[in-house]
Amino acid sequence: MASELGFEKPIIELKNKISELRTFTEEKEIDLTDEITKLEKRLQQLERDIYGNLQPWERVQIARHNERPTTLDYIEQLFTDFIEMHGDRLYGDDAAIVGGIAKYKGSPITVIGHQRGKDTKENIRRNFGMPHPEGYRKALRLMKQAEKFKRPIVCFIDTKGAYPGKAAEERGQSEAIARNLLEMAGLTVPVVCIVIGEGGSGGALALGVGNHLHMLENSTYSVISPEGAAALLWKDASLAQKAAESMKITAPDLKELGVIDGIIREVKGGAHRDLVQQSESIDEILHESLTQLSKLTEEELIEQRYQKYKNIGQFTYVNDAIPLNKG
């Protein structure tokens, strides 16, 4: 049983009550079917109310759920013949990013993603999914390789952010991220990016410059964590919940802002409830994206990506003045 989040408590309590009544019916041979049916109806309503109307902060909690499926979970479900490749050929191998080659519905593909752990031990090994420069450089190496062999690229985004450490700075965290942004913009093969958990700032974006960008319904994507935003804007990290609301970080928010192409529906209660079913929803949209993109030429792929990012942003002109140059 997946560990429960605070806001799910009413659902759990009701579920427990129903199973108690069931046991009671069986043991004492007293017919409580009517009561049970009534409660089950209430449970359905309650689930609709809670899961159908998740608040930003609740989605943050689901996105961070310990048991939420990771990149490797989805790779296993979606692809065959996955072979993980290691190292950036410059410094080392970063376990916070995984990548390799595989087949998707029989065709070659390169798949890359942030990789966090599900328990403390694995999280330490994978640095909580927070990459160093060598992670981004490994990802870039694999992307350029995909380009060489003309296979599409799928990136799974799932990180709190690039690691803020001394060694990361010394080895050029900024340059590693920046280089990926530039190089991804120019890739001649289709790139599909899917945010599966937390999309934390530049560290997420460094795997996120794609032709299509999708988000799982309960994933988040933001310029700074809610805690960080609260600390910065109101000098109080405990206002994270408020920040999660103001910062517009959920999939529906990003769709409205014109940043993402699609929202991938999640299993009721979150992706961790049913990996197989969740993978099927991802499969559907991934297949659709790759089919669409496979029709574009190399130049068209670059141009489509260019226009996509070019159009992101909101601005106006002083006094509605006509701009002096069209730019």
């Binding site: 942004l181 913009a185 120019g186 530049g202 990012y309």
Partner: peptide, 26 residues
């Protein structure tokens, strides 16, 4: 760095400017 008050739109300016520079470089 990024302008917090414009949230993810600020973040995306990183990709937008880098894409422009890629074009220039190409």
């Amino acid at each position: 760095g990024a302008r917090m008050q414009e949230g993810v739109l600020s973040l995306m300016q990183m990709a937008k400017t880098s894409a422009a520079l890629e074009k220039l470089s190409r």
